[in-house]
């Protein structure tokens, strides 16, 4: 089951020396349970900041973040870690696979951190997850031997292995051709539909031929089009 994410009057200000940089200016945004949302905009700083706030990676300067009616803004550090583990699956090219671990171990990582399953259960779930993204045969090799598309699939398997309610997908196709994008997104959407997970994705521009439930544009730190 997916989660509903609500951002209420979110502001984010970075202070760099004497400069105060308002990267997110009073943004209100909601992604309903099981829906697919795309955040676009050429303003990379604002877009990335909004995504980080939305993914509970960074706290907003002001405003509130709700996930399934629960206010996440004032959660303690430990609870925030637990919520991230239980609720989110993260896919980003800034979050690479760990090179010293085999693919299967990489995929097991969220479950190992969660620590509520036996080793056999974790392994079975990881294999299942890899099979789901069509990468089961890659389980016992190291990430250095993977191609770009395989890495992306394994990252996706790592994101969904913990059965998250929100998939958080950052700009992952910076150097990808459109066909490959489309193929990946079709797989992603299929997974979201089958599992019922909420999808939040960011991109510089809207994606041709891909239909999201919601597309928002961010410009100068504000939602310019919703």
């Amino acid at each position: 089951m997916g989660s509903t994410i609500l951002l209420r009057e979110i502001k984010k200000i970075y202070k760099v020396g004497p400069i105060f940089d308002d990267v997110v200016k009073s943004v209100d945004f909601v992604v309903e349970e099981g829906k697919k949302a795309l955040i676009c905009g050429e303003d990379r700083t604002s877009r990335a900041a909004l995504m980080r706030i939305l993914g509970l990676i960074e706290a907003p300067t002001a405003g509130e973040v709700y996930i399934d009616d629960s206010n996440m803004t004032d959660l303690s550090y430990e609870k925030m870690c637990a919520v991230r583990n239980m609720t989110f699956g993260y896919v980003s090219d800034l979050l690479p696979l760990i090179g010293s671990m085999k693919v299967i171990n990489n995929v097991q990582l969220p479950l190992n951190i969660r620590g509520d399953m036996t080793r056999e259960e974790v392994q079975a779930r990881a294999l299942e997850s890899l099979e789901y993204v069509g990468a089961k045969d890659l389980a016992n090799i190291f990430p250095a031997r993977l191609g770009e598309e395989d890495v992306r699939r394994v990252c996706l398997a790592r994101a969904i292995v913990g059965l998250p309610s929100v998939l958080w997908v950052d700009d992952i196709w910076l150097a990808q051709d459109q066909m490959e994008q489309k193929r990946f997104l079709e797989n992603l959407f299929q997974i979201c539909d089958e599992v019922g997970v909420t999808l939040v994705m960011s991109s510089e521009k809207p994606l041709a031929g891909i239909s999201f439930d919601s597309v928002v544009f961010i410009r100068n730190g504000k939602l310019a089009y919703h």
Binding site: T4, L6, R8, D28, F29, V30, V31, E32, K35, A37, L38, Y66, D69, K205, P206, L207, A208, G209, I210, S211, F212, D213, S214, V215, H226
Partner: peptide
């Protein structure tokens, strides 16, 4: 969802995007 609407009045339900983004 009631609580959502109560807390966040500005939020609108999501509309499907058009085929041409």
């Amino acid at each position: 969802m009631d609580i959502l609407k109560r807390i966040f009045k500005k939020a609108e339900s999501v509309e499907p995007s058009s085929p041409d983004p």
